[in-house]
Nucleic acid binder design. Structure first.
Lengths: 249, 249
DNA sequence: ATCGTAAAATCTGTTGACAGAATCGCGCTG
DNA sequence: CAGCGCGATTCTGTCAACAGATTTTACGAT
């Protein structure tokens, strides 16, 4: 049974983990718990408590923690334990700069690889996006940005570049989710819709250069708007956390 | 004691691991062993044997293995054990495409961040590069491409973007080393030297757009030449890049 | 009352042992 | 001689216990 990496972690939020091994399952559960905000960012992780909470011994738990460390969802200090990663404005800006390059590459490749069916799927996503903005379709809880996510996610997949897919879907997108609750971007959905249409048009034209440029501008614009709404530009850290969130229980 | 991530793994090959914890040390040792080729790519990893070889129990070893899994230096299957990652031509091409985007971003940022001292350091690297090509300086064993590595490494550092630095120095560069022995690129050092000079010139001019474009061409060219010497091209789309309209901002 | 110090409690790092699964080897059968 | 089944062995996954380090707590001195 392959369980190496490309398991359905980010693919669709509703998938069941259910990995064969216990450490694997724990990894996915903690992964989601951190991104969902159930484990407070910056809070200390107590191995005995977590082990008890998930009804496992510390062995598999520590293996899962070591994997989360490599995904930079937690930090570990020798003999001091683990802490859940924190989200700073500076790192959000850095993430977006990298995202700009990687997604524009994905768009370039996708322009060559997208099938007619893929284009139809993307079209329906954009249509749904519009329907939601106009209030025609009901907005489910998670539905606010989910259609946006799916759009970018499918393009990443169609890059047909496993390494790129991994960086985007398994590393960058999850980290972005850390900021979702903390720094909400104000309403630029109409803007995003327009830009999505342009990107889709470039994909339909099978124009890699155009698709790349469109995506690059799309992400760059999103980054700038996001940073504006956050008040401070990402260069300097905003304000040292007054008090640190305490251990979760 | 912080030992989270930015430990000297790729920085300079000769650093001592000596992490505080045993699992940490093991991780670094195995990391180097795999990249050095001491653990044959594709070979199966026996936990009892490795544990005995490094004189530790299986606990810390498994923790280190789980970290290596996230770095994609090994693959794990439930109840089937671990295998050392393998290097295929296709994945090399994929790596280079991502590298092209990430390093061009790094060059862009470095153009804004490089100090006069940095520029002097880079200049000396280029000079050393030339001396080696002309045979003026002795070529040490590892010295063949080390100067090239240092050049790119310093530029990555000067991006001042921790996330980008991590992707390049901790993930992409190590994976590239997997191919170093398997697919040697024939002699393009003179070409590389010229392109390095151009990149350095753009950095000296504090010209982000130019630095980005130069680096992008540099990596793209290296990828094409590399794939040519490998006989088979690693991807489906061979040479549809007669000339490419670089995206500018 | 505050600060410093020492003992107690807790936590992390590590080890060894056990249970289930997979692989290997051997003998049997066609 | 090839293919298959079955037992033995090895390996992976998991757990509980120990040792060193750290944090907390209690106590006494200033």
């Amino acid at each position: 049974m392959e369980l190496s990496d490309d398991a359905p972690i980010v693919t669709t939020p509703g998938v069941a983990p259910a990995g064969g091994t216990l450490a694997e399952r724990l990894f996915h559960q903690l992964f989601e718990a951190i991104l969902q905000g159930e484990l407070a960012p910056g809070s200390k992780i107590s191995e005995p408590l977590l082990a008890q909470k998930y009804s496992v011994s510390r062995g598999p738990l520590r293996e899962a923690l070591h994997r989360l460390q490599e995904r930079h969802l937690i930090t570990r200090s020798a003999n001091h334990g683990s802490r859940v990663a924190e989200a700073t404005p500076a790192s959000l800006s850095e993430l977006f700069k990298v995202r700009e390059m990687l997604e524009s590459l994905a768009a370039r490749e996708a322009a060559l690889n997208c099938t007619a069916e893929d284009l139809m799927t993307l079209q329906s996503m954009v249509d749904l996006h519009e329907a939601r903005i106009l209030g025609t379709a009901p907005e489910r809880q998670t539905g606010l940005s989910s259609v946006d996510r799916d759009f970018h996610f499918l393009i990443a997949q169609r890059s047909n570049n496993p390494f790129l897919i991994r960086l985007l879907c398994h590393e960058l997108y999850p980290l972005l989710r850390l900021y979702r609750s903390k720094y909400r971007n104000t309403d630029y959905r109409k803007r995003a819709l327009l830009e999505h249409r342009r990107i889709l048009g470039a994909l339909e034209d099978k124009d890699p250069d155009m698709a790349e440029m469109m995506m690059r501008r799309h992400i760059a614009g999103a980054r700038e708007r996001r940073l504006e709404t956050m008040g401070d530009d990402g260069s300097a850290q905003p304000k040292r956390r007054a008090k640190r969130a305490d251990v979760q229980r």
